[in-house]
């Protein structure tokens, strides 16, 4: 597998070759493909994309997100989902089809400030994303600490087939809920485990593109003090 990676900023020309432009790039003229974000460009097979290192979450249908209740009307809640749009959670999703605006008080279920694990049910940019919490593992989050990371680095935190997150969970005896919107909730009964898990997540966030990241996280988790030296990491790739 040949992936060519490089650090780029907006306006940087990634290639003039015959590639298909995908996320976070734009075509200039006939064939010049230019980055639209600060991030890491990837040329893979015949496509070009940039994994952004900054920016807000852009909702995608079926994504798991961690939202914060910021307001409610008599018919719905508004969730801050770390995006440019607010998540729209209709009351019927929680109370069921026989929801009655007279009888059912929304604040009895979710209050302002509550965190919820939700799934994006529908989104097309013309309306605010519709989210649902009516599924297994969804709903109000009752315990844990919130850690925020760049949404672009969520795949790295999960790791290949979940290896990274499993490593952290096992080593610290914690349960970690990862929202695609960069919100991560860490629940752990042991104070030191909690601290370590949070440290590991922050480490992935700040070193998302270094080599042997899993190894280095493991090393930190196994070290007694839970305080890794966050040394400046070197870049892994052939780029620059």
């Amino acid at each position: 597998m040949d992936v060519r990676r490089r650090y780029v900023i907006p306006g940087d020309t990634i290639t003039s070759g015959p590639y298909r432009p995908e996320q976070n790039v734009t075509l200039v003229g006939e064939k010049k493909i230019v980055s639209t974000a600060v991030g890491v460009s990837e040329i893979y097979d015949n496509s070009v994309k940039v994994i952004p290192l900054a920016g807000k979450y852009i909702p995608k249908i079926n994504d798991l997100v961690v939202g914060k209740v910021v307001a409610h009307t008599s018919l719905s809640w508004e969730l801050d989902i770390n995006s440019c749009y607010v998540g729209f959670l209709p009351a019927t999703d929680v109370f069921g089809r026989d929801f009655s605006a007279h009888a059912d008080e929304l604040a009895t279920k979710l209050r302002t400030g509550d965190l919820v694990a939700a799934r994006v049910a529908n989104f097309d940019r013309t309306r605010d994303p519709l989210v649902t919490i009516s599924d297994r593992d969804l709903g109000k989050i009752d315990s844990g600490d919130l850690v925020e990371i760049a949404p672009g680095r969520v795949p790295r935190l999960i790791g290949k087939r979940g290896t990274m997150i499993q490593t952290i969970e096992t080593a610290t005896n914690s349960i970690i809920t990862i929202g695609q919107n960069g919100r991560v909730v860490v629940a752990c009964d042991d104070a030191e485990g909690l601290l370590k898990a949070k440290k590991a997540i922050r480490m992935v966030n700040s070193m998302a593109h270094s080599t042997n990241l899993t190894e280095r996280v493991k090393e930190m988790l196994e070290s007694g003090n839970g305080a890794p030296q966050e040394t400046a990491e070197r870049r892994e790739d052939d780029g620059e």
Partner: peptide, 11 residues
């Protein structure tokens, strides 16, 4: 800005 309820509880 609304503080999340988990953090408030922890404080």
């Amino acid at each position: 800005e609304i503080i999340d309820s988990l953090k408030r509880a922890r404080i």
